[in-house]
Design a protein around this nucleic acid. Structure first.
Lengths: 188, 188
DNA sequence: GATTGGGTTGACCGATCTGTTCATGTTTAG
DNA sequence: CTAAACATGAACAGATCGGTCAACCCAATC
């Protein structure tokens, strides 16, 4: 299997797991939908868990890339970037393919803290928070980690509510809340 | 089966689904752990989905009751109750049995918007938001629904992060963010 | 053209899934 | 005491689960 084929397999598996859930998506379906026989899949991934981990690695790379790029595109100054986060999220929510946060779902289906899949999901959140902390520091906040934590909470809450009901538009509300929080967080 | 037995069955099934997930918990395990034979279970619940719906109804009742009671116990004035939400959450996070929000998990495993389980999870969130809106109105906020939405976002974010990593204490951070938001939301 | 060898395949394995059946207790009510 | 009502465990059906295997294809080498 070429490297291309392998990447394509992971990409399509990502979509299946994202849409149907991890336990609910069998390897037979993955084989059928990707057009790659189960035997070939298992030649490149020892177990289903290994495939899921590869999927999550791709998702982490794609998602963080999309988000960080989005922040830079929407705003130049660090402080504006922190608020622009919720504009990027809004764009994401409005995509047809939006189905919530894959890492929250992965963590929900594999809940043991020591489980590799859960650990990988946590690592994704840690990296995001780290980035927000850096931006908050550049923006001149006195406690950049606290600011990052507040943003993370608003971000996860907005995602969860956006995934559960399309009735309200939590991205807008989250941005409004973030504006209040940022406006009154102490600067250096 | 007495009404007691039935309630006990639902209670134990709740714990199993909450801890292991819905798809990952088979009916054989439910029968074994509850001490109720599979035959009897299926006499009272036509399908596994029906059992899950009953479990979610119980959870909704217990959780909303615990939360509303907690708010009233922690604070008398409506505005203080809104902030006390995050003290109640903190107590919940510190329980050994804490495993995240059951409705977020249910919604993650049954993602189709029209699925009855997803609908029930959404209804739970709707009822909570409705209550927050009432309290925010009593507290004299100019836009009680917006305040409730902000609180919901902070609440869901805090729960998700608390469930994914016990390293930080998002309840405290969420309360701090909520304090900033409430302090600068317009009053009537 | 014959041989080789990596990559692919459909068929298959045992286990487990939801849900049912049934013969055998075990309660409960008259 | 008897009869109806209910609960039980074990086995079953049909499907699907994660995972494996011998056979096969096809391009490269001699």
């Amino acid at each position: 299997m070429s490297q291309n084929k392998r990447a394509e397999l992971i990409q399509k598996a990502l979509w299946l797991f994202y849409r149907n859930g991890f336990h609910a998506t069998g390897m037979d379906l993955v084989a059928k939908e990707t057009g790659v026989s189960k035997t070939s899949i298992y030649k490149h991934f020892r177990t289903k868990e290994d495939l899921i981990l590869a999927v999550l690695r791709l998702r982490d790379e794609n998602f963080r890339n999309m988000l960080l790029r989005g922040l830079e595109d929407k705003a130049a100054k660090p402080e504006d970037q922190l608020l622009a986060l919720f504009d990027v999220l809004k764009d994401w929510f409005e995509e047809d393919s939006f189905q919530g946060c894959m890492f929250i779902k992965a963590s929900a289906e594999f809940q043991e803290a020591s489980h590799p899949i859960n650990a990988q999901a946590m690592e994704h959140k840690r990296l995001l928070k780290e980035h927000f902390t850096d931006v908050a520091r550049a923006a001149g906040f006195a406690d950049p980690e606290a600011v990052a934590c507040h943003l993370m909470i608003l971000k996860e809450g907005a995602i969860v509510l956006a995934a559960m009901s399309h009735s309200c538009v939590p991205a807008g509300d989250a941005k409004e809340a973030a504006r209040l929080v940022l406006a009154h967080s102490p600067r250096i």
